[in-house]
Structure formats: structure tokens, C-alpha cells
């Protein structure tokens, strides 16, 4: 939150004497102002020499805060927004598409959970290729494990025999390495700024429709746990930032998470704990049978489907199973 000083530039009423008055009540920032009892503050202002001017300042601050209030939408408008802007994107795999009733949805965060080498990265790369090819959309791939392979993505492209088209599809996918959560914040901030300015200029062709984060858990694990709660706060902040981006710019977001052991018997559960659980809209669990390369995907959580449905697919060698 901005210090009160910064409000003065646009509004001379928030002058030094007003700020001194606020500071004497422990108010330094706009946020402090929100948390303070305003009636009490007005009563104190009454006793001051320049009471009128101070009260004017308080009223002005309140009107500023009111401006922050977001406009409302009714149900029909929401439904319209859903039909017009929140499409489902094909994952590139017939079985998974039918499991998810079309694929993953724009505006939602989908999480893939699975042990190491269960096919999470393969799923992500296949989805990236599929979205870039079928919808002519841009895809941003944030990679934490140097596991992004352009060659593998090229194998997933259905029309890979057409060299020009292949180049076009591949150039729509951009990849960026991220090695710590702070860089991740910078990245997402930058992305938000770019997307907002694109929206203002009405750039609609080659819109960003899919953001892949592979894997979010390796960024968060180093900061999580221990005595402080700061790690958890950062984790939730990243989660909400992703959700906001997804909602406001109609992007489908795909993140991957690993598994940790849960009690005895070798059973596993998704990492990052209970706090993270509320963040993704959809959680999918991947398990791979190493004997026959079969990959089983089951729904752990979904906004519109009961949990527990499963589908089994093969890890594809190449593009022979195109839809």
C-alpha cells in the first residue's frame, strides 16, 4: 500500500498537516487508514484547530477508498462472460479431453499432481503444443527444472510435416526459466502489465491463452516450513496472483505439483499442504505404470464434476494419435 505522501501529488488536500495529524494516530499508509476507527478519527479532528480541513481530508480519503470498490455483475452477465470468454482448451489427448468435458477451462487454474516421472511434464508440453496449434494462441511456459524440450514439443504437433506451420506453432510458444519464487513474482507482475496494456490496445490476435508453470512446487518447497509463516504467505500470494491473471485475462493456467508420502503403507498425497489445496480449481492426479507406459489420470477436485473419475492413456511416442 502507498504511503499517504503519494496521494498528495494528485490531491493537495492530503497535505503535510493532514499527514501529521494521521501520523499522530499511527496512520502512515492508506492501508493503516482503512484499519482505523474513522468515527474516532473524526472526533479527534473536531478538536483540532483546522478541523474543517482535516474532516474534508478524511471524507476525501473515504471517497478514494470507495473508488477501489469493483463493479458488480449479475448472474446473466457472468454466464455471458463464461460463454464468450472462458472456453475449454483441448489438452491434445482424446481421453483426457473427454474426462474433463472438453479440456481445461480458461480462467481456471488446473493442477497436475504426480510422483516423479509420472508424465506431468509430458502432459504440459502436449497441452502447450495442442493449444498453440489448434487455437493459434500464444503459450507461455515457465520452467523450473530445465525440462522444457522444444524437440519433444515439435513431436506433439499434429501437422509437423508442414515445416512452415511447424515453425509458426513453435514460435507461439515462449519459454522462460525461473529458479526462485521472487523471480516468479517479477515475471507475473511483468506479464500482468503487458497483458493489461495489450487489452487496452485491443490486441486480440495471438492472445495468450495458456500459461504453464512446471513446477510450482519446486519454487515453493525451499521457502516453505520452518518457524516463520512468511513462506506460506508467499505461496498463497503466488497462488492468488495466478488465479487473478487467469480470471482477468481469460488464460488457462496449468501448474504441476509433486507428491509426498502420507503416513504408512507408501501412500502419497499432493505436496504443499492444506493451504495450497484451496488454490487450484481443478486437481488431477497422475500415476504411471512403468511396466506398460500406461498413464492413469484421476480427478481429485473439480469445480463442476465429482471427484474420482479416472482415465488411462498411453505416453505418446510421437504424433501418430492426433485428434
Amino acid at each position: 500500500m502507498a504511503p499517504l505522501k503519494h496521494v498528495e501529488r494528485e490531491n493537495p488536500i492530503i497535505d503535510a498537516s493532514f499527514r501529521d495529524f494521521c501520523a499522530s494516530h499511527g496512520i502512515q499508509t492508506v492501508e493503516d487508514f482503512l484499519l482505523h476507527d474513522l468515527y474516532e478519527l473524526a472526533a479527534f479532528a473536531e478538536r483540532q484547530r483546522n478541523a474543517d480541513r482535516l474532516k474534508e481530508g478524511i471524507t476525501f480519503m473515504l471517497s478514494l477508498i470507495e473508488l477501489q470498490c469493483r463493479p458488480w455483475l449479475n448472474g446473466m452477465e457472468l454466464l455471458e462472460d463464461l460463454h464468450r470468454n472462458k472456453h475449454t482448451l483441448s489438452t491434445g489427448d482424446k481421453g483426457i479431453d473427454s474426462l474433463l468435458q472438453g479440456g481445461f477451462r480458461e480462467g481456471q487454474v488446473t493442477e497436475l499432481v504426480g510422483p516423479s516421472s509420472s508424465g506431468k511434464t509430458q502432459f504440459c508440453m502436449q497441452a502447450a503444443a495442442s493449444v498453440a496449434e489448434k487455437y493459434s494462441a500464444r503459450v507461455l511456459y515457465l520452467d523450473t527444472g530445465n525440462s522444457f524440450s522444444a524437440r519433444r514439443i515439435a513431436q506433439f504437433i499434429c501437422s509437423s510435416s508442414d515445416a512452415a506451420l511447424r515453425q509458426k506453432v513453435l514460435s507461439r510458444i515462449s519459454c522462460q526459466m525461473v529458479y526462485d519464487v521472487y523471480t516468479m513474482f517479477d515475471m507475473l507482475h511483468g506479464l500482468e502489465v503487458t497483458l493489461r496494456s495489450q487489452a487496452q490496445m485491443n490486441v486480440n490476435e495471438d492472445r495468450l491463452q495458456l500459461l504453464v508453470v512446471d513446477s510450482i512446487s519446486s519454487l515453493i518447497t525451499p521457502i516453505l516450513g520452518g518457524s516463520g509463516s512468511q513462506g506460506r504467505a508467499l505461496m498463497v500470494a503466488v497462488g492468488y496472483m495466478l488465479k487473478k491473471l487467469a480470471h482477468e485475462h481469460n488464460i488457462a493456467i496449468l501448474v504441476t505439483n509433486h507428491t509426498v508420502g502420507a503416513g504408512e503403507g507408501g501412500r502419497t498425497k499432493p505436496a504443499l499442504g492444506e493451504t495450497w489445496k484451496s488454490i487450484p480449481h481443478v486437481r488431477l492426479m497422475l500415476t504411471r505404470d512403468h511396466r506398460n507406459n500406461n498413464c492413469t489420470i484421476s480427478i481429485l477436485k473439480h469445480t463442476s464434476m465429482p471427484a474420482g473419475h479416472t482415465v488411462t492413456t498411453m505416453t505418446r511416442e510421437d504424433n501418430t494419435h492426433c485428434l
Binding site: 500464444r138 507461455l140 511456459y141 522444457f148 524440450s149 522444444a150 524437440r151 514439443i153 515439435a154 515453425q167 513453435l170 514460435s171 507461439r172 510458444i173 515462449s174 519459454c175 522462460q176 515475471m187 511483468g190 506479464l191 503487458t194 497483458l195 496494456s197 495489450q198 490496445m201 490486441v203 495468450l208
Partner: peptide, 22 residues
Amino acid sequence: GSNGTTSLINGGKNAWDMLHEE
């Protein structure tokens, strides 16, 4: 202007260039 539309984030590389690098 156009700078903002060609690259979504600073330093990102597209898969086509990466394919040749790989």
C-alpha cells in the same frame, strides 16, 4: 507499442529458436 506484443515477458524465448539451440 509493438515491443509489448512481440514478447510477453522479458527474456522469454520461443520454442522455434530453442529447437535449433537444442
